[in-house]
Design a protein around this nucleic acid. Structure first.
Lengths: 330, 330
DNA sequence: TTGTAAGCGTTATCAG
DNA sequence: CTGATAACGCTTACAA
């Protein structure tokens, strides 16, 4: 089943390769009707399909972009990815998705491979551990947009959520409900969103004149969170409200509460940073901070395509406000 | 910033292109130490990165495969995709993921584009509506594995779950708990898993001598399910148990129950076909039928790579048993 | 041990 | 309006 090439079509139709190429690329302007028909028939007859690889090599553009997510398990990753894909689809370009799995080695490999495969640009949820590589891409003028996480000292296009502001708002909400003993649980402070959320937490408390308590601030790997919660609620003065730094932390909290037969909203108020798909279906509907994943994805794709088409070269930080959705748990 | 090519490296190192190529491909066997070093230095100095596109064109293999999922929102899709990616990663090949969004047009486009981009093979969760295309791939000897859904009259490699058997088991379980008024809700019967699950449902009931009741069998688009449930529970004899055909149907049921202030397990027993991530954390832990997504993904990837490497040509249907996980809801 | 040259399947440039 | 011909960046016999 030798694949049929343009040369075969040309021979079959009795024209030259270049004419077939014109036809394929719809540059019919100066093409005779009969030539067109002959080529069309030959293509159908042979079942010809152009080889995009060869075309890309020649054109130096693959019409593909890469998305490298830090961890596909985060709700935001999937929302944003779908949004980007949507946008690209409309612009006839393909988005390919890779999952770094919070592993800087994997991230490095994906960046290198996608680059070598000549994808036209990259949208990265950076692990933050490959500064040299990020910098190299930028120095090279390779189109790239960083998503969700800012990298200290890296001047680039960013699309991020207003993590600090949103957290401030949510903590203030808890305070307005009479809470003063408010704890926060996040994964380790390796990336900017977590740092910014903690910053917001601290800011809101100190603006309200509530002293920070070290024991109320948990930053642990997913597997350790359970253990940390154990300690937290064993304190002489356990918190009356809890801020979950993201959807994965929320799941850990859920596990913990289930295990201890504690009830969300009753044994502690809860706010989760991240939209939880079933938040409104839970026994106690949970208050969340929704990030505009769709809009963020659209924006990232838009900037990237502009870079690719050389319509824009200056870099920006695009910050998206979040929405506090108050439900029963707070 | 003109990209640096192999020719540049060759010039810089004072050797020929082919020598550099050897070096890149680690065919050092007959290479002088000093040549190696010169090339290595030149590569580092110029920051050379090979162009995989050109290589692929020459080698007629891209080391990429495509995954086309019917709908990324299904839990199984993501589980299987991750598993496939895992397997591929170990074999140094890249998996790229596309979401047909239950849209046969999109599916067709993705298949055509991936094929044109010369991916080495395809794993498809078929919509079922593009028989001609599926058949064409197979006639062409193009490596392809169909996942989750069987296509009537298409001889090919399949990796599917034992939908009928698992459903029989679960319905029998409900019967053993004393239920006789058992309803089933699925999305429209367009694809084999849904048909097979319904078959299992019918089989289990008739084996138990329980007559089938038409009103107990819902097959509706997601948006209509709510409405159908309404009718179902307005029956003179509403069911005491409910079988949800998949995870999306489950969410609709959850919505409905929440809305009606009904309690799962109390107002009706429930079994869901599909593993639900938070099944064990729900207020009433829900009984599920778990499909071995990881194993299915590994198997599909394995078969596909064998086909690609021409190690295997005969086609099979690989059926994976599922596990009924009994929790509080049934 | 390394170099030469011919492809891989397109597209682009320029004649005719 | 159509056809040669030269790229694109790499691999691979085969020659040296």
């Amino acid at each position: 089943m030798a694949r049929v090439t343009m040369a075969d079509v040309a021979k079959e139709a009795g024209v030259s390769k270049s004419t077939v190429s014109q036809f394929i690329n719809k540059r019919y302007e100066y093409m005779g009707e009969d030539t067109k028909k002959k080529i069309d028939e030959a293509i159908k007859f042979l079942g010809y399909q152009p080889n995009y690889l060869a075309r890309s090599l020649k054109q130096k553009r693959t019409s593909m972009i890469g998305i490298i997510v830090g961890n596909i398990m985060h709700r935001l990753s999937t929302e944003v990815s779908r949004s980007i894909e949507d946008y690209c689809h409309k612009h006839d370009i393909h988005a390919i998705l890779c999952n770094a799995d919070d592993n800087p080695e994997k991230e490095r490999k994906y960046i290198e491979v996608l680059h070598a495969k000549q994808v036209d640009g990259l949208i990265i949820f950076p692990t933050g551990q490959n500064l040299d590589l990020y910098q190299k891409l930028i120095d090279e003028d390779y189109p790239v947009v960083f998503m969700d996480r800012k990298i200290e000292g890296l001047k680039a296009n960013y699309v991020v959520a207003a993590n600090c502001d949103a957290t401030v708002e949510s903590i203030k909400h808890l305070i307005s409900r009479g809470h003063t003993k408010i704890a926060i649980a996040t994964q380790p402070l390796m990336i900017s969103p977590r740092i910014d959320r903690l910053k917001g937490y601290k800011q809101a408390l100190s603006e309200a004149g509530i002293p920070l308590i070290k024991e109320y601030m948990i930053h642990a790997e997913r597997e350790q969170i359970n253990h940390e919660l154990e300690k937290l609620f064993a304190l002489k003065e356990p918190p009356t409200a809890l801020f979950a730094g993201n959807d994965l932390v929320f799941i850990e909290i859920l596990e913990f509460f289930k295990d201890k037969q504690m009830k969300i909203g009753k044994d502690a108020a809860l706010i989760v940073f991240d939209n939880i798909p079933l938040a409104h279906l839970a026994e106690t509907q949970v208050t969340t901070i929704a990030q505009p994943g769709y809009e963020m994805g659209q924006k990232a794709a838009e900037i990237l395509l502009k870079q690719i088409n050389k319509e824009q070269n200056d870099v920006h930080e695009h910050v998206f406000p979040c929405e506090l959705i108050i439900r029963e748990s707070s």
